[in-house]
Amino acid sequence: MQQQPKAQHAGPIAIGALAALLVAVILVAILTGRYPVMPGDIFAVVVAKLSGGESGVAPTIETVIWNVRLPRVCAGILVGASLAAAGAVYQGLFRNPLVSPDILGVSTGASFGAAVGIFLSLSVLAIQGLAFAGGLAAVAIVYAIGSIVRERDPILVLVLAGVAIGALLGACVSLLKVLADPYNQLPAITFWLLGSLASVNRADLGSILPAVLVALLPMVLLRWRMNLMTLDDEEARALGVETRWIRIVIVAAATLMTAAAVSISGIIGWIGLLVPHVARMFVGPDFSRLLPTSMLIGAAYMVGVDTLARSIAAIEVPLGILTAAIGAPFFLYLLLTTRRGWQ
């Protein structure tokens, strides 16, 4: 009973410290790379682009900052924050600390959509659109199955349906990989499934930002109801919460956010599973503090991992490999050292 006030007091401090950490990680990410960049160059280029003036920076450095590193860092912020927020929502909604954003099949649906686009040799924009639509369609099918099977626990039905649909779509992706051209299409599908921000540009950011903001709005507006959704449905309804409609709205928001992020980055695991656990260590389970904390940690982690991916070797390491290599041991550490319940 004494830990809750302490968590409430530490919440604003932790959020402020994490925001400062995110700014530091962003600065390091922009400065890191084969082309040396000074902190003053970043400020000069941003001011010049926003004001329409001259930056006084070498054209090559200006191009690297404005067209390459800044869009990539912004994409890392959006993707990391989105996956972490969706993970926090799903773990609270399904009352399970092992739930991640792909529990309802959104990631495998996006994978299938992108694989179809690559198999048909479509444009990058079309591939991203198919990935986005595939993620939404997969969750829509899962929810349709859940609405048909009403006499059982709705959460259990959704999880089991998500596992089944995810397995089916995973098999479809494997079939496309078998049928794909082994010299062009197969490497492209494999690289997309491993996750990367290497080809992200400002147009990609503009395409997913509205979806992320729209999805974030119900999470913020319903933040206090999310605390009640961690209770059993009967208890939540006794407190005046309409669990069925809130679950539909929140799942739709988290799915929209995840599908938007995955459509430009590919499949990046462990962020939605691991980050909410770390956030709870800082601020506790209260969703009004857990959501911004998870988003800050997820954004900083994603930007940091992406910086590591493009700087530790001569070739870029896929993000999915690094997030798994870092996230799995850390998750096991949390599992072995945490003595109290996840809530």
Rank of each mutant, 00 (worst) to 15 (best):
Q3G: 03
Q3A: 14
H9E: 07
P12M: 04
P12E: 02
P12K: 06
A14Q: 04
I15M: 13
I15P: 04
A17W: 08
A20S: 14
I26T: 11
L31A: 09
L31K: 08
T32Q: 13
G40P: 07
I42K: 05
I42E: 07
A44R: 13
V45G: 03
A48T: 00
K49V: 01
L50E: 07
T60K: 08
I61G: 03
T63M: 14
I65Q: 10
R69V: 05
R72D: 07
R72G: 05
I77C: 14
V79W: 00
S82K: 10
A85V: 13
A86W: 11
Y90S: 07
Q91W: 11
L93T: 13
P97F: 03
L98C: 04
D102Q: 01
L104W: 02
G105W: 04
S107L: 13
G109M: 09
S111I: 09
G113M: 10
G113A: 09
A114G: 12
A114F: 13
A114H: 11
G117R: 10
I118L: 13
L120N: 02
L120R: 02
L120G: 02
I127W: 01
G129N: 06
L130V: 01
L130H: 00
A133S: 14
G135I: 02
V139Q: 06
Y143G: 00
L158A: 06
V159R: 03
V159L: 15
A161W: 02
V163G: 06
V163S: 10
G166Y: 08
A167Y: 05
A167W: 00
C172W: 01
C172L: 15
Y183S: 10
Y183T: 08
Q185W: 11
I189H: 04
I189N: 01
I189M: 13
T190P: 00
W192L: 07
L193S: 04
L194G: 06
G195I: 11
S199P: 00
V200N: 08
R202M: 14
R202A: 14
P210V: 10
A211H: 15
L213H: 08
L213W: 09
L216K: 05
M219F: 01
V220E: 03
R223Y: 04
M226G: 11
M226Q: 14
M226P: 13
M226L: 15
L228D: 12
D233A: 13
E234A: 15
E234F: 03
A236P: 08
A238E: 07
E242P: 00
W245C: 00
R247I: 09
R247A: 13
V251D: 03
V251I: 15
T255L: 07
L256H: 02
M257C: 12
T258N: 05
T258I: 09
A260E: 09
V262H: 03
S263R: 05
I268E: 06
W270I: 13
W270P: 08
G272E: 12
L273V: 12
L273R: 10
V275P: 03
V275N: 06
P276W: 01
V278R: 00
M281N: 11
M281D: 00
V283M: 10
D286F: 05
D286K: 13
L290I: 08
M295H: 07
L296P: 10
I297L: 15
G298S: 05
V305M: 11
V305N: 10
L308H: 04
A309N: 12
R310S: 08
A314I: 11
V317K: 06
L319Y: 02
G320N: 01
G320A: 03
A324C: 03
P329E: 09
F331V: 07
L332N: 01
L334D: 03
L334H: 01
Q343T: 05
